[in-house]
């Protein structure tokens, strides 16, 4: 049994979501079960009507970072949503929306992209995380 990994995604900018998606794909490739918990702005980025849109970058990116990210995308880098889709095909990856954040953003499960498997509270998240590592992005 490979060690579980729990990722809490809080930030909703494309760079942080991309980093999280790559970490997820690598862990899934090694057979590690990955449990992703979406809070706040990360959850907003998973709205079905927004997932393919531009979610901006972390402030430290600046203009130079923006240009670098755009260049990689133009060269054919898979979007974070596509990378997560592939990671889900490849391994045991579950993506859950935080119920408090659902209330905060006034969302229904039908508002979310099908990448999201369900809605859970923080206690369920910790139970699912078990003794595994927890990473907050």
């Amino acid at each position: 049994m490979e060690e579980r990994l729990a990722l809490v995604l809080f930030s909703g900018t494309d760079d942080k979501l991309q980093a999280a998606a790559v970490l997820t794909a690598g862990a899934a490739a090694l057979g590690r079960p990955v449990h992703i918990f979406l809070q706040y702005w990360a959850l907003d980025a998973f709205r079905a009507d927004r997932i393919a849109g531009d979610h901006g970058l972390a402030p430290e990116a600046g203009a130079e970072g923006r240009a670098a990210v755009d260049a990689l995308a133009k060269a054919g880098q898979a979007s974070w949503a596509e990378t997560l889709r592939q990671a889900k095909e490849l391994g045991d990856v579950r993506i859950e929306a935080c119920s408090l954040s659902m209330d905060l953003l006034d969302l229904e499960p039908s508002d979310l992209d099908p990448l999201v498997d369900g809605v859970e509270g923080v206690t369920a998240f910790w139970v699912n995380a078990g003794e595994g590592q927890v990473v907050f992005i």
Partner: peptide, 14 residues
């Protein structure tokens, strides 16, 4: 070729 990390590994696994 032209696929970025971790794309090639994922294609291999598939």
């Amino acid at each position: 070729r032209g696929s970025f990390c971790p794309g090639p590994l994922m294609e291999l696994i598939r």
